Simulated assay, not measured.
Amino acid sequence: MDVLAALFPSVAVALLFWFVVRAMVQGDRRERAAMAELDRQERERAAREASRGTPREAPDLPPQ
């Protein structure tokens, strides 16, 4: 029983570390998927505008 009591803190910290790293990796995966989807949508929009001959909006530049 003393062995289990001695190992419990290390096992608990290892599990906590594993859950935190797993959550970070999954969050990164979801963020990359969302960014890829946004990039795909932007490319599609740009292709539609190019095929229609619609100019893209120019960024607001300060007067010189």
Rank of each mutant, 00 (worst) to 15 (best):
38 L>F: 09
31 E>Y: 10
63 P>E: 04
64 Q>K: 10
32 R>W: 04
39 D>F: 07
53 G>K: 01
14 A>L: 05
26 Q>L: 15
40 R>S: 09
4 L>T: 08
60 D>V: 15
19 F>C: 12
21 V>R: 07
7 L>T: 12
61 L>A: 14
29 R>G: 06
4 L>S: 08
48 R>E: 01
36 A>I: 01
40 R>N: 07
63 P>Y: 00
61 L>S: 12
24 M>A: 13
21 V>K: 06
60 D>T: 14
39 D>P: 01
4 L>I: 08
46 A>S: 04
52 R>E: 06
32 R>L: 06
38 L>T: 09
52 R>G: 01
9 P>V: 02
27 G>S: 02
11 V>K: 05
24 M>Y: 13
34 A>S: 10
43 R>L: 00
23 A>V: 10
35 M>I: 14
49 E>D: 06
24 M>S: 11
53 G>C: 00
53 G>F: 00
56 R>V: 08
36 A>M: 06
11 V>E: 04
19 F>E: 12
41 Q>W: 02
41 Q>K: 07
25 V>K: 12
59 P>Q: 07
10 S>I: 10
30 R>V: 04
57 E>R: 15
7 L>N: 12
40 R>E: 10
18 W>N: 09
49 E>R: 05
49 E>W: 01
15 L>D: 04
53 G>E: 01
35 M>N: 13
48 R>W: 03
15 L>P: 01
37 E>C: 05
55 P>F: 03
5 A>D: 12
22 R>V: 11
37 E>W: 06
38 L>D: 09
2 D>L: 12
41 Q>F: 03
3 V>H: 09
16 L>Q: 09
36 A>F: 04
58 A>K: 15
10 S>R: 11
43 R>I: 01
21 V>Q: 06
25 V>G: 03
37 E>H: 08
41 Q>A: 07
36 A>P: 01
62 P>K: 15
51 S>I: 05
47 A>K: 00
51 S>E: 12
42 E>W: 03
57 E>M: 14
32 R>Y: 03
12 A>H: 04
48 R>N: 00
38 L>S: 10
20 V>F: 05
30 R>C: 05
5 A>I: 10
25 V>M: 11
4 L>F: 08
20 V>T: 07
42 E>K: 07
27 G>I: 01
35 M>Q: 15
16 L>S: 10
14 A>I: 02
31 E>A: 14
6 A>K: 14
54 T>H: 12
31 E>W: 11
39 D>A: 12
60 D>R: 15
63 P>Q: 04
62 P>T: 12
46 A>P: 00
4 L>H: 08
39 D>Y: 09
45 R>A: 04
19 F>G: 08
1 M>I: 11
12 A>G: 00
23 A>S: 13
2 D>E: 13
29 R>S: 10
28 D>I: 14
53 G>S: 02
4 L>M: 09
24 M>H: 13
38 L>H: 11
20 V>W: 04
40 R>G: 08
15 L>Y: 06
13 V>T: 11
27 G>R: 02
39 D>M: 11
5 A>R: 14
54 T>D: 13
57 E>N: 14
9 P>M: 00
12 A>V: 05
59 P>M: 03
14 A>V: 03
56 R>T: 09
51 S>M: 09
28 D>P: 08
13 V>G: 02
8 F>N: 11
41 Q>G: 03
43 R>A: 02
47 A>R: 00
38 L>A: 13
63 P>K: 03
18 W>G: 08
40 R>C: 05
18 W>P: 02
